[in-house]
Amino acid sequence: MLGLLHTSPVHVPVFDGLRDAGHPELELRHHVEEELLARARREGPEAVAPAVRAALLRVAEGRGGFRAGAVLCTCSTIGGVAEAVGADLGVPVVRVDRPMAAAAVAAGSRVVVLATVASTVAPTTALVEEEARRAGRDVSVRAVVVEEAWARFEAGDSAGYAEGVARAVREVRDADAIVLAQASMAGAEALVPEVRVPVLSSPRPGLAAAAALASR
């Protein structure tokens, strides 16, 4: 069983669909705490570490004491905190964007990170740089915040949100890979087939990595 820690309920059907398509045998247990992202945006990701700790324990233990084999944190803003807290708790945690960051580093030396909330920029940039060091590659990371798209997301306009992100992708120049920093941005990936560099989103590779860990 894989536990998932979300900061928006919109991710639940996305990951259920990915499970059905690629990991039909995997049981998912979803846990949504929207306030974690709201607080992290106001106070910074590190400030919510105690709340993330409590949330991870709730996800890992589940109802009736049924323990998850691993937990997938689908929020890029708090993903690094979840990894660190999970290590302290002995809970295997996968941050959804780590496999995406590794793929971006493998694609080339110029990585552009697109985000729709500013709080995601620093954690995602640091993650790409960490994966570059791990791979022994010299990578430059440039971040762009597509702030006007987030209002669409908050209004429940998923199509408008995805198109806003897609427009930002089309405007990127001088990149070897474009990273869609938040799981919520994945819908834009299919809207930009004309873009000649990899446009990378996190849900599919993140779920695959977490499923592999949960099965060990």
Results as ranks from 00 to 15, higher is better:
Ala208Lys: 06
Ala135Phe: 00
Glu43Met: 02
Pro203Asp: 00
Ser76Gln: 04
Ala188Glu: 08
Leu114Pro: 08
Val59Gln: 11
Glu34Lys: 06
Val121Glu: 07
Ala107Asp: 04
Ser140Arg: 06
Val195Thr: 08
Pro9Ser: 09
Glu189Met: 12
Gly3Met: 00
Ser140Trp: 09
Val52Glu: 02
Ala115Arg: 02
Val105Met: 09
Ala155Leu: 10
Leu26Gln: 04
Ser201Gly: 15
Ser202Glu: 07
Val145Pro: 01
Val169Tyr: 10
Ala209Glu: 15
Ala115His: 09
Leu28Pro: 05
Gly79Ser: 15
Gly3Leu: 05
Ala132Lys: 13
Gly108Trp: 09
Leu2Met: 06
Val52Lys: 08
Val145Ile: 14
Ala102Cys: 10
Asp16Asn: 05
Glu171Gln: 10
Asp20Arg: 11
Ala106Tyr: 04
Thr116Met: 04
Arg42Phe: 02
Val94Gln: 11
Pro45Arg: 10
Glu34Phe: 14
Ala212His: 05
Arg204Leu: 15
Pro13Lys: 06
Glu189Ser: 08
Arg67Val: 09
Ala38Met: 05
Glu148Trp: 07
Arg137Gly: 11
Gly136Val: 09
Thr124Ser: 13
Phe153Val: 11
Arg58Glu: 11
Glu189Gln: 14
Arg53Ser: 05
Ser184Phe: 12
Pro99Leu: 00
Ala132Gln: 01
Gly164Asn: 02
Arg167Ala: 12
Gly136Thr: 03
Glu43Leu: 11
Pro9Arg: 10
Gly44Pro: 02
Leu207Thr: 11
Glu163Lys: 06
Ala107Gln: 03
Asp157Ser: 09
Val192Ser: 13
Arg98Leu: 05
Ala104Tyr: 08
Leu26Arg: 15
Val85Gly: 04
Arg173Cys: 13
His31Phe: 13
Leu213His: 04
Ala188Ile: 11
Val59Thr: 14
Leu18Pro: 11
